[in-house]
């Protein structure tokens, strides 16, 4: 190892030392603990009972495991690409050179900071089959009424749409990315006669590819772990005033993977089984992330490399 390599190693480790410290003290133990739990039967209190691979074999026979996995993949497959496109469009809108742009930015950003708890209430009103704005507009242009939260074929899409209200967050990242695009490059392209669309695709887009990669990975992480919205929307459970949350949407169509995992852990007290579920999800997530990173090598362009 050369002197400069050694110095770089020392400096690199020094810079990331807060992360290393946090990882070793706060993350390693919980990770190993959940791995240990996944091979046991454990309520969280009584003694852990070793059951070997039983949780994992049981899982593949569990109808709700497959159902929730299907729901989650379905959701993620829709939410990630839609999310990237909406966020970019929003960022472009936020980057317009008009006087009131700061007001527009705020307006576009607001929905992403509304408490999910309150937002989901508003969303339910918005999707009302008869009175909600969504179906009123749809009706005006001749579309049939869609019962977005009652028809199991549409519920996941309703959550995908709701997630887009939060696109203001990722849009900020894209905005920061757009802001980094050198004005000179765009101007010289304009002089060469490139229209706004061509300028976007040939100059802007390649320069924000690192942000796109980030957004895809984050979208994947959030999509695979989608939980809160469904939890809140269904915990008032359609047609029940009961103290117990009813079903996870019509025909369990909103039973997402982490929602099921959460129920197993904290409602059915099956910590072992929940851990097994968690590890399966984690491994699938990492494989998907690896695929995205590999694939990204062909289109992400870093200035510093």
């Amino acid at each position: 190892m050369t002197r400069s390599a050694r110095r770089n190693l020392r400096n690199g480790l020094l810079f990331i030392s807060p992360w290393i410290f946090g990882f070793l003290t706060l993350q390693v133990y919980p990770i190993l603990y959940s791995l240990r739990m996944s091979f046991t039967e454990y309520t969280g209190f009584n003694d852990m009972v070793d059951v070997g691979l039983q949780n994992f074999t049981e899982l593949f026979k569990d109808e709700l495991f497959w159902k929730s996995a299907y729901n989650t993949l379905y959701y993620t497959a829709l939410a990630v690409p839609i999310g990237v496109v909406v966020a970019i469009v929003l960022a472009i809108a936020m980057n317009q050179k008009v006087k009131e742009v700061s007001l527009y930015r705020a307006i576009l950003y607001i929905p992403s900071i509304l408490p999910v708890f309150a937002l989901s209430f508003v969303w339910i009103v918005f999707l009302n089959p008869k009175f909600g704005l969504f179906n009123r507009i749809g009706g005006a242009i001749g579309l049939p009424t869609i019962d977005m939260l009652g028809d199991p074929a549409w519920t996941k899409f309703a959550i995908v749409l709701m997630a887009q209200l939060g696109a203001g967050g990722p849009a900020l990242i894209f905005l920061a990315g757009l802001r980094g695009v050198p004005v000179e490059m765009l101007e010289s392209a304009q002089i060469d006669g490139a229209g706004p669309v061509r300028r976007f695709f040939s100059i802007t887009l390649p320069l924000i590819t690192p942000v796109i990669l980030y957004d895809v990975i984050m979208g994947l992480a959030m999509g695979l772990q989608v939980f809160t919205q469904a939890y809140i929307i269904t915990s008032g459970s359609a047609g029940s005033g009961g103290s117990i949350g009813g079903s996870a949407g019509p025909q369990d169509s909103l039973l997402f993977y982490v929602f099921y995992l959460y129920k197993c852990a904290f409602q059915y007290s099956q910590m072992g089984y929940a851990s097994a579920l968690a590890w399966v999800l984690f491994i699938v997530s990492v494989v998907l992330a690896l695929i995205v990173f590999k694939w990204a090598k062909s289109w992400v362009h870093y200035e510093s490399e």
Binding site: N8, G12, W19, P30, I217, A221, Y262, L281, A289
Partner: peptide, 27 residues
């Protein structure tokens, strides 16, 4: 900074965002 093992550790840091919280929160 270019240092040995960087990319591997970076990857580990990234994949921690994929860990579902309900089972790690207990420990």
């Amino acid at each position: 900074i270019q240092w040995a093992g960087r990319d591997l550790i970076f990857f580990i840091a990234i994949i921690t965002i994929f860990i579902p919280f309900p089972v790690t929160i207990v420990a």
